[in-house]
Design a protein around this nucleic acid. Structure first.
Lengths: 197, 197, 197, 197
DNA sequence: AATGAATGAGGATTCATTCAT
DNA sequence: GATGAATGAATCCTCATTCAT
């Protein structure tokens, strides 16, 4: 259930309020009031408040997974892994800044999701991480990246930065976004390189 | 109000439940049942559910600030900044693993705190970060650390790892803790070094 | 929010119970049970228990102020002040007997109102008294009424009777109401007359 | 249970708080805090919160009944009823001003008393009114006072002023008290006199 | 006499959701 | 499709009173 002017307005209001006040502190009443629709109209498009929350996860996961697949598919056959990984990192970071409110909700409200959906989010998120991890593993095999540190930790080391963006980043301008993305990518790739190389 | 057998049991139960199910999904009833005390007894020691939550923040902030000050004070007068910073990073990471449940609550429930207390947490947390930032700044002045990246981002880059621990770390054994702390410290310090050095 | 079958039933039940048992001794549960509605329905029409109480004040103040204004406006241009004042007194007393339960609540529960509303009641009540006082003042200027006693005390002397009705009056019949009103008015006007006249 | 420094302090604090905030809005905790004693100490001297409230009624009733009896007993054998009644009225009014806080509680919190005690207060109050009524009746028999108005209403007419004092009187000075008492007595006795006399 | 921790019943309020219209 | 009145379960919190010390 997801189109029409009503559904969009509701989702936007929900993201805004959930990011600002938290999911638990936001009543359905507040959401519909902010969206300028009635409760009945909302329940016509969304099954529950949980559905609203899941919508945020779903669209973000769909978006980022799609972009990741695209970048990898679009990579030149002879491209070095470092080049691809850099593109991926920059893209994730930029997208996360674009959707920083959704990101704030994402990392803060996972435990508010009802159970089957929480599992789905975890599964899709893991799939995403695995694809990212495969890139690093390839770089390790090719001798570019350090192997003295567990793969899982390297992945976590990168996504911690993605995660943390909503805790400190505040939009000053469009250029800032690309600069931040490139600098964080740089920090990550620097630490990833073989120490002795 | 913060001692007696009752207060401790309640706090422990609260940490456990808040970390597992989230603050909003945990009723005071569940907390007191888990602690084996009555609701009235709990309200004798804590003013509100919010007070319970704040207690988690307060004790963690007090602990970590204390340790940070101690390490800096205990550093040999001729110690290089890198040595001190490494000790600080390792300590923060190890402490965060020891109190990983409190950490999970910390980063997930800040918006559930009532306003004056939320401000206090933010203030104390900022003070902590500032002290950490001062170390890096000293390293920059001494020529050890890179200056091409804003100080605030370097700080965020480290604390994102601290933050993220509760999302992926799970205790496999006592050695693991020190290993993880040392490896994450390593990643951070590697990326911090002057690129051209 | 103040119509619909539900709102009326709730208000009536509230007046009855507040007058009989007092506001503090009456639970919202008792009110909704007496009104035959659910708690949720009540909270759809009233914001709080306090709102219920304020509703009693509001309707009584509105009613009596309206009637006072009407009587003064309707007075013949050449009417003596004594004639107008008598009409006002009789009307206030009769109305107070008609709404004797509301009156019982009025004088007993003012301190249970939350602050901004308590101020509003005081303000509106004062406006009402001032209008009444203006009539007496006119009578004093015209030489009908005594001036050896402060105006405020004369006003209090009358409203004390209004106030006290709910402490001793009990409805024996419709005639009694008009008799009581006329007799109390008589007592008041007698004491108001210039002693030496 | 009623002496010792503790009991007095508690009673004074209770009167103050009950008069200011109302009985229902005042917790035992607030009373003992204001009195500077502990809860246990209070419960050593008073059986219940209700006991505290009843104490206010008891002392006021005892005091006023005692004074009434005294004045009547002390009247010269050949004293006119008007003289005695005037003395009684002035005394009641002055005493009520002296104990105006107790009076505020008296008229506002009767329905908060537990049942047997509420009946006792009503009974003793009625006895007091009856004695007062007997004076008026004597004046009627002696031809001084009007008989066209029911005795009960005449009594109510006077006590309404006593009652109402706490709603408008505020202490400006010691002289004011005697002036107010004498003026209200005057208003009452004026209206009491035979209209045709 | 005095303490104050502990009890436990009760109260006001919120809110996601349903459903007749 | 849309409304919004109504539901009813759940939640946080208060508080008079007791009792071991």
């Amino acid at each position: 259930m997801k189109d029409s002017h009503v559904a969009d307005d509701v989702m936007n209001a929900a993201v805004e309020l959930f990011a600002t006040q938290g999911y638990a502190n936001t009543s359905v009443q507040q959401v519909v009031a902010a969206a300028g629709v009635t409760k009945g109209a909302m329940y016509h498009y969304f099954e529950s408040k949980d559905d609203l929350l899941f919508g945020i996860y779903d669209s973000l996961l769909t978006l980022q997974k799609g972009r990741l697949d695209e970048i990898i598919a679009a990579a030149a056959p002879d491209a070095g892994v470092d080049e691809v990984l850099r593109a991926v990192c920059v893209d994730v970071l930029e997208t996360s800044i674009d959707y920083i409110k959704q990101g704030a909700v994402f990392f803060r409200s996972m435990h508010m999701l009802t159970e089957p959906r929480r599992q789905e989010v975890i599964r899709r998120r893991r799939a995403y991480h695995d694809e990212f991890a495969a890139l690093i593993a390839r770089g390790q095999r090719e001798g570019d990246y350090r192997t003295d540190i567990p793969l899982a930790m390297l992945v976590a080391h990168f996504f911690s930065d993605v995660h943390y963006l909503s805790h400190w980043y505040s939009a000053e301008g469009p250029e800032s976004k690309t600069l931040v993305a490139s600098q964080l990518t740089d920090l990550f790739l620097t630490s990833l390189r073989r120490p002795d190389a």
